[in-house]
């Protein structure tokens, strides 16, 4: 049976609500601890619902212990989950009737220490390659690069004659056949071939010049 979380204890010669803040917090904490003890003892007996309630109830405390040990917010949830798995494996070591907090804190602390050591080992053996991240893994970095390339191409296209630009757009960018491009532009097939060739040559020279700069 789970004890109610809020319970007013009668105080003789004093109104129940005159309990000081600290005392009340202590009482509530004690009630919480007794809940945990009852839930964990029930979980040891195979009560899945009590176990679920226990694991949910201890999460804030487990996170607080992990935070105190690590300080790195990104690792806390990993450590808490690791601690829950460990708790599951060693739940038979809890002695019913004993306080849960020291037992639980030892588990979370252990897993936090392991996580900190693991991070230390990775830090000494592996090197972060920021350029690799920007070029291949980060879509925003790649889109910036693509935008820069597009800007360069647009700038170079302004150096082409109108007929060369039209021929290049129809044949190479829109991938029309020469006959279709001829019908669309009014240029003869021969003119289209010559204009595309000259446009590409001019763009290539522009790229070489950019690379040299």
């Amino acid at each position: 049976m789970i004890s109610p979380r809020f319970r007013l204890v009668p105080h003789f010669g004093r109104a129940p609500f005159q309990v000081t803040a600290n005392r009340r917090e202590t009482e509530l904490a004690n009630d919480g601890d007794r809940d945990w003890e009852a839930l964990l003892a029930a979980a040891q007996g195979g009560d899945g619902e009590a176990y679920r309630a226990f694991l949910r109830a201890i999460l804030p405390y487990a996170r607080a212990v992990a935070r105190r040990r690590l300080g790195d917010e990104s690792q806390i949830e990993d450590v808490v989950q690791d601690a829950l798995l460990t708790l599951h494996r060693v739940r038979h070591t809890y002695q019913p009737g004993r306080p849960v907090r020291p037992w639980l804190a030892a588990i979370v602390n252990r897993r936090a220490i392991d996580a900190a050591r693991r991070r230390g080992r990775i830090g000494t053996r592996e090197v972060s390659d920021d350029l690799a991240l920007e070029t291949f893994a980060d879509p925003e970095a790649n889109s910036i690069e693509a935008a820069e390339a597009s800007e360069t191409l647009s700038r170079m296209m302004t150096g082409l004659t109108p007929k060369q630009k039209e021929a290049l757009e129809l044949v190479k960018l829109k991938e029309m056949s020469l006959a279709e491009a001829s019908a669309a532009s009014g240029q003869s097939v021969g003119s289209l071939k010559v204009n595309v060739h000259r446009a590409i040559r001019r763009l290539r020279r522009g790229l070489d010049r950019d690379a040299a700069e």
């Binding site: 979980a43 999460l59 808490v80 989950q81 739940r91």
Partner: peptide, 22 residues
């Protein structure tokens, strides 16, 4: 990992709550 993943861990552990002898 997220709070959602922690909930999943809790659910899977609760499903495996076989009796243990302290």
């Amino acid at each position: 990992m997220t709070g959602r993943a922690t909930e999943d861990v809790i659910a899977s552990l609760a499903a495996e709550a076989s009796p243990v002898r302290p």
